[in-house]
Design a protein around this nucleic acid. Sequence first.
DNA 1: CGGAAGGTTTGATCTGGATCAAAAATGCAG
DNA 2: CTGCATTTTTGATCCAGATCAAACCTTCCG
Lengths: 229, 229
Amino acid sequence: MLCASCEARHGGVCAALDPDQLAVLARSARKYEAGSGTELMGDAERIESYANVLSGVVKLTKTLSDGRQQIVGLQFAPDFLGRPFKAESDLNAEAATDVSLCAFPRASVERMIRASPELERRLYLQALKELDEARDWMVTLGRKTAGEKIASFLLMIARSIEPAAGTDRMSARFDLPLTRADIADFLGLTIETVSRQLTRLRADKVIAIENNRHVIVPDLSRLEARQGR
Amino acid sequence: MLCASCEARHGGVCAALDPDQLAVLARSARKYEAGSGTELMGDAERIESYANVLSGVVKLTKTLSDGRQQIVGLQFAPDFLGRPFKAESDLNAEAATDVSLCAFPRASVERMIRASPELERRLYLQALKELDEARDWMVTLGRKTAGEKIASFLLMIARSIEPAAGTDRMSARFDLPLTRADIADFLGLTIETVSRQLTRLRADKVIAIENNRHVIVPDLSRLEARQGR
DNA sequence: CGGAAGGTTTGATCTGGATCAAAAATGCAG
DNA sequence: CTGCATTTTTGATCCAGATCAAACCTTCCG
């Protein structure tokens, strides 16, 4: 059965469900892959389904009518994707990398929420986590310099991609899930400024970059010293 | 009894409770006033109580160690103040104006949440609302010009202070609940830039200002045209 | 009423990051 | 491997908003 080996079964919202409930939900669930760049949900579109992110990274964006864009959130496995209790989305969700998702029809999720306070609790906790993250980024967007923004971003990715890093390890290596353009949209900068700041970090030997995507941080504390605190 | 004439009894979280539950909670509730500038909750402080905002405005701030500050949220009546399920606050809450609050000890709120899924649902909805707001502000912080930020801010205040305005009415007048310094901390600008942009809006007759605090908007659509869309 | 203390506006100058422009990597299809 | 498209880096210049510096208002309290 679908859920047996699923990551969301553990850390994700499905962990809230008992075997019977899980069986019910699994019946209407549909697992699928989407290539990088695929739009998963459009602004002003009716919300017809929710999904768990099983692998890859999803970016949530808002766009002004003249084309200026801002990424307002990134979702990693096993995050739950979608905004309950709202008929229409007011943002775009797009696959930032190739992703694999487990989608549920809107109706079954909402029925399940009504039936399981435990599930609602999980969703509430994720909303609180996303709110905490959004507020941290407001500080980054409003008050940090370009160099501090880039350092903050790299540290955030390092922590999300390889949870091992965070605490004790001194070094980290990971692939950037975003292009330079995406990083710019996330940090409220231009592509050129992102590139220049990465170049500077490289020149100062705080990081090394291979093939434009793979980042090596030999000493996380040196990167932390640059994020602004 | 306390709750009979309370505003939070209607729009706020207390509306989720039945009369018995309300009576229980009221027993440990304490209503009080705090003057503008009072710190209501400190960063890295243990969370000992929650509160409903009954009147006035509370600002939520984050501060970098070198003093740079960012306001990450504003709370108006009848918002619920506090972050459930977390031992320690990671932000400051301060009265931006004189406020009146109805405070509950941490333990009674958490007991009540466990007892009332309806209350938890309300809190979840408020978290989702705050998340939506935070994401809108991320666009403002990351991608709008100083002039657009100020217009967005004035419109947000107009809508929160006098809910009547929002829809059909063409004009609005209200007192700014924040000083120029607070507005700057909210928008990621300096005091001087805030002042200059307000002066420009005044020069262009989009707004009028009396006594530094009272704002008159004769035609909301002209202000909307300046907020960036 | 005078006068000290904040808060606000205005002016002059500077600068970090944007914009404009082009070269260099990288990836891919044939 | 070659050639083309896309992404990234680097360089030159510009400008919105920051910074530095004064004046100007409001309160409000003795």
